[in-house]
Nucleic acid binder design. Sequence first.
RNA 1: GGGCUUGUAGUUCAGUUGGUCAGAACACAUCGCUUAUAACGGUGUUGUCGCAGGUUCGAGUCCUGCCAAGCCUACCA
Length: 892
Amino acid sequence: MKYPVALPKTSFPISSSNHDNILNFWKKINLYKRLTQRSEEFLLHDGPPFANGSPHMGHAVNKIMKDIFNRGKALLGYKINYIPGWDCHGLPIESAVESNLKKAGKRRSDFSIQQFRELCRDFANEWINVQKDGFIKMGVIGDFDHAYTTMQSQFDILKELHKFVQDDLVYRGFKPTIWSCSEATALAEAEVEYYDKTSNSVDVKLEIISKDRTDLLGAKLVIWTTTPWTLPANRAVACSREFEYVLLELAGEKLIVASELLDNFMQRTKKTYTLIDKFRGHDLVDLHVKHPFYDLGIQLEVPVLHSDHVSLDQGTGLVHIAPSHGEEDFVLGKQYNLEVTELIDNNGKYIDSLALIGGKDIFESENIIIEKLRELNVLEAHNKIVHSYPHSWRSRKPLIYRVTPQWFISVDQMKKNVLQVIDQVNWIPEFGKNRFISMLESRGDWCISRQRVWGVPLAILYHEETGEILKEAIPEIQNLLLSEGMDKWWDIASEVAKKHPGYVPCYDIVDVWFESGASQEYVLHGKRADVYFEGSDQHRGWFQSSALQASRVIPKMPYKNLITHGFVVDNKGRKMSKSLGNGVDPMELIAKHGPDLVRLWVASQNYIEDIKWSLEHLNRVKDIEKRFRNTMKYMLGSVIPFSYEGCYEEMQLLEKWVLGRVYQLNQEFKNAVDSFSTYKFVKNLFLFCTVDLSAFYFDIRKDILYCEDVNSPLPKQVRMVLKHILDNFIRWIAPIMPFASEEAWMEMYGSGVNSVHEQTILNLPNWSDKDIDVSMATVREVRKVVTSALEIMRERKEINSSLDAEVHIITRKLNGVSLLDMKQILIVSGLTIYNCEQDFYDNEGKRDLYSTADVDDVQVFCKKVSGNKCERCKHVHAGIADLCDRCFKVVS
RNA sequence: GGGCUUGUAGUUCAGUUGGUCAGAACACAUCGCUUAUAACGGUGUUGUCGCAGGUUCGAGUCCUGCCAAGCCUACCA
């Protein structure tokens, strides 16, 4: 015979595919707008992702975490302000568009700059739409209708740049760039590929002519280079003060090389030597030597300088310095005011005025140069070397370093300004601060010009010779571009310039970091953001450019909290890449598993470190998701169809304890939101569901919920507690699993009008009671001993359910806990508690007692309880038929 | 090559200032409930704490070196 019991009842599903309806609901009620109708603001400024591809896991982590912050803050009652943005300009898009043209059989040169920019714009717009759609599917809410893009903000960006010009912070300078002679253009880092190349390697002897050093006068420094074509541009020799150098005699000549590289050098000369002297590099510094082509008209006496970058890996420990043809050379040259010579033209030919090689191709001239060096008796050795060398990815031709004129922002004062207010920012993690500072300190002036077309034109006029910028023309330029559009700069610039004799227009575009760095102006309008949250690569990117730009005039940081996250890597810690095939598409995951799961995966990560992706881990997170949903399902089913009431004071120990846990978790939720870190909260919430609720509280209270008269006080109180848990729980998971939360909310309060995401967390009385927590900890300790003892009986097939047993406990620990409470908590049919062993023996006779090593003062004896099992509640009682007294009353 | 960061059970992680710190959960195995049932509960197994030295009475915890990985940067005459 089956007797009716009050089982939970709900249509809330354990898994759901109702996402689209919920997304539509949020759209219909304009959830984002509703969340902006509050007073105190939480302003999260979106770092714009690059508009050139579909969303990847990095986007997912970034956007979802931002949304969790936003929804979390909304639950704490804040007005949210989140305007998504996109970074649209730059080389990758230009390259992609160009390659698309190529695939279509077209050439870039067939398009005007304006037309080409139009194509880039279309390309960017297309990807913005794809990404926008993806982010919305992830559940991200924000002002997508008024998203910002750098391409729509061009004019504001230019105005911002002009402020730097007006403040005399922009100047023309020179910079070594990687130059392609075949294409007559500077290349970006991304356009360079390294292949092996066979080069000439030469050891060249430079005679010391410093008269005050008679000991070394006439001796020759040996320099080694693999780019003999740069020798005409030689302006110095670098050595290291610290290294030891040797003076040796070789075929009648005195030569100097570094001790450690002597063998290396001798292998190239294939001669024998006599060692004369040893000394520190310090002794060489400030000597002067003859230029390699001294006897060919370049009558320079070049200095020997110390440089930290001199190494003992190869060469001679004495380095040929040509400031116009090398990064380090340029830096050293700048430090010592060396002449930066322009000996070659855009196509890689020497200038005509140069003797012997004038007008000739630099690479082709190398043989002539080497031959001449030999004739001049400055060549010690000539060999061939195969080494990795930069090449153009397009023409596959070798590239060279060349110093070209560029535009710079002088950052010294801004750096000082930023460092002054560095502590106005809360750095999460803390080490981000030092990382930021060291990167800031080590940076040089900001090169803002790019020889490209897809970007904000660096619209200025400058004096052809002096490089002075014509500030008076700025209003005129701005007015023209405002009415004509930014694309028109390339058409109107020359006309503007005509009105200002001597001045020419700049056709470069502005570095994209300047564009996004100015977003604080055109998006935030100078307001300080509460949070910037991006990958840790942005310490030298957006975080830095934003801070520098904010501090143009006075020290100011654009963000209050600067939070960085790691990168998504696979379970072996390797970054996701196409070649490894370990990449994963977040949109596929969402389609397959739903957005909540992906969000929960993100929320359960400590994003400070690298974020490890694996399917195995996702499946584990899936268990957490199921546990959360199932916990809500159980509570919904136990609350909605029944009546509940009761106040804290009337509740049992167990109920008071659970409410205490609810209070504690509510505090933890606030902390998680305020500290922008959810993973510990997710873990604790999961433990709450499994350990506290499912395995303990729910398990114990099933008897009362199912079997007791539903209208009697105790079930009503238990359901009241469940209602409390539920009301809080739905809110706690709202930021993390907004879809499940909304579903539960609708199940609870009906659908169609309000969203859970408009709610704020509940202001709970302090239910946390330390005394109750302590005694409950003891209770659970005792319970653990009892379940272990019962397990032994179960193994012996003496019992199945714990209700088949009666338990005797000998302990002094359970003072203050009623026998009835304890019996319910243990879920057994009989319980006796003794204060000492003798009392137990008096009652039950001499028995073997069970105890465990980790719990002292608790001994247990269990036996099968005698009597009949109640068909309804499964408790065993003596002297009953098929129903116990309680169940009989309830049923009838 | 340099700067910052990370490395604890199969997995994800806890381990405060060096002294019950070798833990939790999941997974796995197994038993039970059949009244959350495409659920729920109990019990059990798992680790040279990246490797090698050092400091200390004592180190996962401090120091040094190395290895692996991530971000940034320099990739060299």
